[in-house]
Every structure is written in C-alpha cells, then in structure tokens.
Design a protein around this nucleic acid. Sequence first.
DNA 1: CCATCTTTGTGCACGCGTTCACAAAGACAT
DNA 2: ATGTCTTTGTGAACGCGTGCACAAAGATGG
Lengths: 249, 249
Amino acid sequence: MATGRTHRPATRSRGIPEATVARLPLYLRALTALSERSVPTVSSEELATAAGVNSAKLRKDFSYLGSYGTRGVGYDVEYLVYQISRELGLTQDWPVVIVGIGNLGAALANYGGFASRGFRVAALIDADAAQAGKMVAGLPIRHTDELESIIADNLVSIGVIATPAGAAQEVCDRLVAAGVTSILNFAPTVLSVPDGVDVRKVDLSIELQILAFHEQRKAGEELGEAVATARKAVKRPGSDGDVPAVMPV
Amino acid sequence: MATGRTHRPATRSRGIPEATVARLPLYLRALTALSERSVPTVSSEELATAAGVNSAKLRKDFSYLGSYGTRGVGYDVEYLVYQISRELGLTQDWPVVIVGIGNLGAALANYGGFASRGFRVAALIDADAAQAGKMVAGLPIRHTDELESIIADNLVSIGVIATPAGAAQEVCDRLVAAGVTSILNFAPTVLSVPDGVDVRKVDLSIELQILAFHEQRKAGEELGEAVATARKAVKRPGSDGDVPAVMPV
DNA sequence: CCATCTTTGTGCACGCGTTCACAAAGACAT
DNA sequence: ATGTCTTTGTGAACGCGTGCACAAAGATGG
Ligand SMILES: NC(=O)c1ccc[n+]([C@@H]2O[C@H](COP(=O)([O-])OP(=O)(O)OC[C@H]3O[C@@H](n4cnc5c(N)ncnc54)[C@H](O)[C@@H]3O)[C@@H](O)[C@H]2O)c1
Ligand SMILES: NC(=O)c1ccc[n+]([C@@H]2O[C@H](COP(=O)([O-])OP(=O)(O)OC[C@H]3O[C@@H](n4cnc5c(N)ncnc54)[C@H](O)[C@@H]3O)[C@@H](O)[C@H]2O)c1
C-alpha cells in the first residue's frame, strides 16, 4: 500500500479487523458504481471481482458488519452502500483542512473526489504571507497564524499536511494542539504524535522504490542477474557522493 | 498509510518478505538524513526510532539482507545506505513516464523528491491535444499517440497513471502492451493486469475514509455514541440520493 | 409441500509478520 | 589476556489475516 499504516499497533476496533476497514472503501466504490447503474443486488463473487479481491475474503469482511446478505441471491446494493457508509462514518460531515498549498496541496484542493464522500475542505492554510488571500479551488488561502482559530471554529478533526518535510512536524504539533486527531501526511517524514491521534501517510517515493525492487528482481530472474549490471550504464550524477565499494569492518 | 498493495499474492521474493521491502525505503530515508549529518554509525535502537518502527523488527529486517552490523557498535551508516540502495535497485537509473498531466500529474512532475533516488521523469503524456507541447517542470507534454514510441525509446519500465478513473484501464493496457511492467496508479479504479506486472495504488479517498472510521470510533467512545448523531447536524447536499432507512429483506 | 439449486456465513488450518528474550559476538579498558 | 559492557542476530511463541471447503439458509419451480 501506497498505502501507509497507522502508528498505533492496529487496535482491533469494535471487532472489525484493521485489514477489513482498509477494504471497506474499496467495496463502497464498487457498490456506488453498481448503484449508479441501478443494479439491485450483487453476489459476493461479482462484487469481489469488481473490487479486486477474493470472494471468500469479501464475505468474511461483510460478516464482521453483520448478516446483510440473502443466501441464494446476494447483497442488496443500496442497503450495503448505506451500511458501509455508516460503518465508515461517511453519513456525517467531516471538515478537513489542507496545510501547505504548493504544487501538491493545490492539486488536492482541486480534487473533486474529496467532497464526494462527506469530506469537505474547510480551509486552505499556508505559511507564505504572499499567498494569503489568493483563491484556490474557490477558497481563499489563509495564513498559518489563523490555523488554531480555523480548526476551532470549524470543528475540524482531520488535517492534511502537504508542506515540505522540514515543516511537517511543527505543523503536525500545532494541528494536534488545536484539536485535530487524524492526520494524513504527504511529507516524507515520520511524524510523532500523542496517543489517540491517528496518522496515515502517503509517500510517492516509497511506492516507487517498492516497484523498483520488484522490477529489479524481474530483470534479474529473466537473464540471470546479468541485465542488472548492464542497465547501470546510465549513471546518475552523484547525489550522495560515491558509494563505498568495500565493507568497512 | 496510505499505501496500496500489490495484486500479486505477495510472492516472497528472494527470501525478503514483502513487509520488509516496504520498510526498506523508510530506513533508507532515515539513514540518508544521518549520512548528511556525517554520523558514522547508528544503533538499531536509534535508527528504529528515526524510522518510526520497533528495533527488533528493524534488526530482523536487516537480517534478511545479511549481517551488516557490528555487535556492541551498531551499523555503519554509509555502508548500510549502499546495501539498501542496491537491494532496492536504486543504484540503477529508472526512467518513468507520467500519463495524465492535470492537477495531480503536474504536481508529480514538479516534485523534486522524484529524481532524488534514481527515478528520472522520461516524459509527460496527455491525451489533450491542446496541451501538447506545453512545458511542465521543464519537460514538454507529449501526446498519447507517442506513448508506445516513448516507452520503447527510453526503455521505460515504470509508469505513473494520473488520468481520470475512466481512462485508467485503457492507459494501463497501452502501457503494459508497450512494455511497462510496474504501474503506480493514482486513479480510483481497480486495474487488471497480466501476470508479471506489478500495480501499486495511491488513493487519497481511501485514506481519508479509514481516518474517518477511526475518528468516528473515537467520538463514539468518548461520549457513548451520542456525539456521532449530534455531529450529523451539518447534512451534505444529497449526492447519492437518500439512503434507505429500513432493511429491504 | 417438497426438491433442487444458488449463494451466504463461518469453522478450520495454514502461513506470514511481529515481538520477546537471550545467547553470542565483538569492542574496549585494564 | 581477561573481564565487562554493549548491541546484534535469531529461535521461538503468538496473533492476525487469508483462503478452503462446506453446512445451512433461502429462493425458485413444479
Ligand atoms: N508534489 C508531489 O507530487 C509530491 C509527491 C509526494 C510527496 N510530496 C511532498 O508533499 C509536500 C509538498 O510538496 P509540494 O510539491 O507541494 O511542495 P511545494 O514547495 O510546492 O509546496 C509547499 C507549500 O508549503 C508551504 N509551507 C511551508 N512551510 C509551511 C508551514 N510551516 N506551514 C504552512 N505551510 C507551509 C509553502 O509556502 C508552500 O506553499 C512535500 O513534503 C513533498 O515532499 C509531494
Ligand atoms: N488531484 C488530486 O489531488 C487527486 C487525489 C487523488 C486522486 N486523484 C486522481 O488522480 C487522477 C487525476 O486527477 P486530477 O485532479 O489531476 O485530474 P485532471 O482532470 O486535472 O487531470 C486529468 C488529466 O488526464 C488527461 N487525460 C484524460 N484522459 C486521458 C488519456 N486517455 N490518456 C492520457 N491522458 C488523459 C486529461 O487531459 C487531464 O489533463 C484522477 O483519477 C483523480 O481521481 C487526484
């Protein structure tokens, strides 16, 4: 998972396994698509295919929510959409602030899929005074000075950090102090937060590195480790300085 | 975290567990920071803290790579940076194409952290003919017609998809047919790919939904399920139409 | 009402990942 | 050389997640 994990040691919440929670949005997306096509019911097999998972896993996942299916028929699409939405807390409104309105922050602000599931961008915040007041995605950029009051006034509990890595921990601390208890972090840093605060991270660089690992492995298997060395042909300009060639023991 | 998982059933590659591979970039980042501060050696305890993991886990992870530490001292920072880089395949050059240069694609193209680890943006590709030729992050946007030749000419094996969801599968198919074997998908869709192709996904919406789940749980625990209903006060304009109130059995 | 057929819900076994806890390795001082 | 002290590397136990396989539930048809 470009997906990152929580800091907290996977507290199995209310009996629903963390792994299941992570898949519920996937099911919800597939179900919403079926709902839009006015499909009334769906079998675990069909839905599993649409969500890209195994049908046994899907059935077990749903069994944690309750017995919502009908044997011999399948699941009622509308009803399941509602149940999952409720379980995920999407039947209520979640005001969100985005901090750091640069390349990424602006893209996030412009992202339509944000609002579609109960998430509402309450404010855009940046430290650059020159940016303050500028409109992005129909919202004015507010200065960091206002951070605390914005959080308090809008009852914001979810914050998105899209600042440079160096500023992330400081921003995180201020968000948490102001009352935010869930953070989505795009900056490549490990954030430390008090207990009770959830952090999830999205790190493009990590995802690419994982892909590179498998890519290298594929190339190595194909031609017996020979290609890997050949590919090195293109050497990138020394960024970290030269690498040590011998073990320094 | 916002991390997505592979389609492939976690083939333990060359004895290195998938979970370990996913953490190597984390260690690498922490080690690079130490390296920049010219720290010569680091203990598993210190490094684990910096990477945000448990020290036993870190030692076990490193043990899959080999015995690179010195008992009583710790790990040599430079040497470990080299070993992990090599294991992840970062000692070679990885040309990458980004397809779909909209809000997100442009932000990705402008992202500096991209190039820092051996990943080089070989080309930016978009279907919009009006966009073709425009410069983004120092590179001209190329038209989708050129996709196949760009991939072939640059030996691209990693593709990033940042198109709308509807176009993602088609783009994916073309990338794969042209020779791409690793895909990082930002579009909210399940991509189906042939065996041997790795897909990782980054889905902002899923991450937020997972946070919302825990957020709801926290609110519920605090005040005995009462706040959740109160919070519903702000009702969002019916997007999917009203939800069924009773079970349709 | 009974038989048949579809599909759910879950008991069970297995494998992966995490964590504990400690023996062994080696640095360093004397 | 010997002893002490630090820190690694890993055996073993445990818990979580996955997938198989099937009994039970219920729809459907005669
Ligand atoms: N752009 C991407 O595709 C991408 C991808 C992955 C990760 N990231 C990470 O996301 C973060 C943002 O990337 P970007 O490309 O948008 O950078 P950017 O430099 O374009 O934007 C950063 C913004 O944060 C603001 N800022 C700085 N310090 C701040 C503070 N203390 N409080 C509030 N705002 C502050 C700056 O004024 C700027 O507007 C970086 O950490 C980057 O590593 C970006
Ligand atoms: N913007 C975000 O923060 C964000 C966050 C999460 C996910 N996403 C997802 O990322 C994708 C892109 O988001 P965006 O905000 O940049 O959208 P966008 O509409 O700004 O950009 C999409 C771009 O893709 C191009 N495109 C369309 N069809 C194409 C095709 N067949 N081949 C090549 N290019 C094509 C369009 O011309 C456009 O430039 C969407 O799927 C979105 O759901 C975006």
